[in-house]
Deep mutational scan, measured.
Amino acid sequence: SKTSNTIRVFLPNKQRTVVNVRNGMSLHDCLMKALKVRG
């Protein structure tokens, strides 16, 4: 089974995003990807 960790990230202006960290990806990469999608 694939394991994925879901991390809630609290952003300024009362924004919130959820990042799924996959195996083999660093938290930083996942964060940058999530913020790019939002931006």
Rank of each mutant, 00 (worst) to 15 (best):
10 F>S: 09
33 K>G: 02
1 S>A: 06
14 K>M: 09
13 N>C: 13
38 R>G: 00
37 V>A: 07
31 L>Q: 01
23 N>D: 11
7 I>L: 10
37 V>W: 14
39 G>S: 13
16 R>S: 05
24 G>R: 10
11 L>R: 01
30 C>R: 03
17 T>F: 06
3 T>P: 15
15 Q>K: 02
32 M>S: 07
7 I>N: 00
18 V>E: 03
15 Q>P: 01
22 R>G: 07
27 L>R: 01
28 H>R: 11
30 C>G: 07
37 V>M: 14
37 V>G: 03
16 R>P: 01
10 F>V: 02
11 L>Q: 00
31 L>T: 06
39 G>A: 07
17 T>I: 01
9 V>M: 02
36 K>D: 06
14 K>I: 08
39 G>V: 02
22 R>C: 10
38 R>Y: 06
19 V>I: 12
13 N>I: 05
11 L>P: 00
33 K>D: 03
23 N>K: 10
10 F>I: 03
19 V>G: 01
21 V>A: 11
10 F>P: 07
31 L>R: 00
20 N>K: 13
13 N>G: 04
1 S>N: 15
5 N>V: 15
24 G>A: 12
5 N>D: 09
8 R>S: 04
27 L>V: 15
5 N>Y: 08
30 C>W: 02
17 T>N: 02
2 K>M: 12
36 K>Q: 14
13 N>K: 07
20 N>I: 12
21 V>L: 07
7 I>V: 10
5 N>I: 07
37 V>L: 10
2 K>G: 14
22 R>L: 13
17 T>A: 04
7 I>T: 03
15 Q>H: 01
9 V>L: 02
6 T>K: 04
19 V>T: 15
26 S>T: 15
21 V>F: 12
20 N>S: 07
1 S>G: 12
25 M>R: 08
19 V>E: 06
23 N>I: 08
24 G>S: 14
5 N>S: 15
10 F>T: 06
28 H>S: 08
25 M>E: 06
32 M>T: 11
33 K>R: 08
31 L>A: 06
34 A>V: 02
28 H>Q: 14
25 M>I: 10
39 G>R: 04
6 T>P: 05
23 N>H: 09
22 R>H: 11
10 F>H: 09
14 K>W: 06
28 H>L: 11
34 A>P: 14
16 R>H: 13
29 D>Y: 11
36 K>R: 10
32 M>L: 13
33 K>T: 02
20 N>H: 12
14 K>S: 06
35 L>A: 06
23 N>T: 11
32 M>V: 10
1 S>Q: 15
5 N>H: 09
21 V>E: 00
26 S>R: 07
38 R>Q: 06
14 K>R: 08
24 G>D: 08
19 V>D: 00
11 L>V: 02
33 K>I: 01
25 M>V: 13
35 L>V: 04
9 V>K: 06
13 N>H: 04
2 K>T: 08
38 R>H: 00
29 D>E: 07
20 N>Y: 12
35 L>Q: 00
2 K>E: 08
14 K>T: 06
28 H>D: 13
27 L>M: 11
5 N>T: 13
14 K>N: 15
32 M>K: 09
36 K>N: 15
6 T>A: 08
16 R>L: 04
18 V>D: 00
16 R>G: 04
38 R>C: 00
30 C>I: 07
35 L>M: 11
26 S>G: 07
23 N>S: 10
4 S>R: 14
17 T>R: 06
26 S>D: 04
3 T>A: 15
12 P>Q: 02
36 K>S: 06
2 K>V: 03
1 S>L: 10
20 N>T: 10
33 K>E: 01
25 M>L: 09
1 S>C: 13
33 K>L: 06
4 S>N: 12
28 H>C: 13
28 H>N: 08
32 M>I: 11
9 V>G: 00
8 R>L: 08
36 K>I: 09
7 I>S: 01
9 V>A: 12
36 K>M: 12
1 S>I: 09
31 L>M: 08
8 R>H: 04
27 L>K: 03
8 R>G: 03
7 I>F: 08
28 H>Y: 12
5 N>K: 14
29 D>N: 12
10 F>C: 04
33 K>N: 03
6 T>L: 11
18 V>A: 08
25 M>K: 13
13 N>T: 14
33 K>M: 06
33 K>Q: 03
17 T>S: 13
28 H>P: 01
22 R>F: 03
26 S>N: 10
11 L>M: 07
2 K>N: 14
7 I>M: 04
26 S>I: 15
29 D>A: 09
19 V>F: 12
14 K>E: 07
12 P>T: 02
15 Q>R: 01
32 M>R: 07
12 P>M: 06
6 T>V: 15
6 T>M: 12
3 T>S: 09
4 S>V: 06
13 N>S: 09
10 F>Y: 09
5 N>G: 14
24 G>C: 13
31 L>P: 00
7 I>D: 06
17 T>P: 00
20 N>D: 04
15 Q>L: 02
18 V>G: 02
9 V>E: 00
27 L>Q: 00
8 R>P: 02
16 R>C: 05
21 V>G: 11
10 F>L: 05
6 T>S: 11
13 N>D: 09
4 S>D: 15
22 R>P: 11
18 V>I: 13
26 S>H: 06
1 S>T: 14
34 A>G: 10
34 A>T: 03
38 R>L: 02
1 S>H: 14
29 D>H: 14
38 R>P: 01
2 K>Q: 15
12 P>A: 03
9 V>T: 14
31 L>V: 07
29 D>G: 11
13 N>Y: 08
22 R>S: 08
19 V>L: 13
21 V>S: 06
3 T>I: 13
21 V>M: 03
24 G>Y: 06
18 V>T: 09
6 T>R: 10
37 V>E: 01
24 G>V: 14
27 L>P: 00
34 A>S: 12
32 M>A: 04
30 C>F: 04
15 Q>E: 15
30 C>Y: 02
14 K>Q: 06
39 G>C: 13
39 G>D: 15
19 V>A: 09
22 R>D: 04
21 V>I: 06
3 T>N: 10
18 V>F: 03
35 L>P: 00
7 I>P: 03
20 N>E: 06
4 S>I: 10
29 D>R: 06
25 M>T: 12
36 K>T: 08
23 N>Y: 11
12 P>L: 01
23 N>C: 06
18 V>L: 03
30 C>S: 11
1 S>R: 13
26 S>C: 12
4 S>C: 10
4 S>G: 09
1 S>P: 15
22 R>N: 14
12 P>S: 01
4 S>T: 15
8 R>C: 05
38 R>S: 01
34 A>E: 03
36 K>E: 05
2 K>R: 11
12 P>R: 02
29 D>V: 09
35 L>R: 00
39 G>E: 04
